[in-house]
Amino acid sequence: MATIKQLSIFVENKDGWLADILEIVAGAGADLRALSIADTKSFGVLHIIVDKPEAAEEALTKAGCIVRENDVLSITVADKPGAFAAALRKLADAGISVEYTYAFVGHEPGQAYVILRVDDNEKAERVLG
């Protein structure tokens, strides 16, 4: 488990925007680790985890994007039924609310990675620790 930097980018619902943004990220030499999109009927928010968040943020800001960086939790869970549910239950019992979450499969077999945006990172780390 670790606290890592996530970049969130405001996007309009227009054709081609995702390609545009990912090209800017690639242009900054940042490698994409995970990605998630939350959208409404008029706009969306793209969340990305990259290996060089500072470089990506700088390039995106320079290109005129609205970007926000914040800390999220990255946890490893066993790739088996109920593993992530158990972690979420611990957080719920501790009164920590999860704003959003997204998962991706890691390089190591049998492991899955989950990104968690919670209202209290430190407390969540203790609870899950």
Partner: peptide, 15 residues
Amino acid sequence: ELTPDMFSDTVSVIE
């Protein structure tokens, strides 16, 4: 136009 100050990573805040 959304201003950088108003932006949040949480959709519900912007909504």
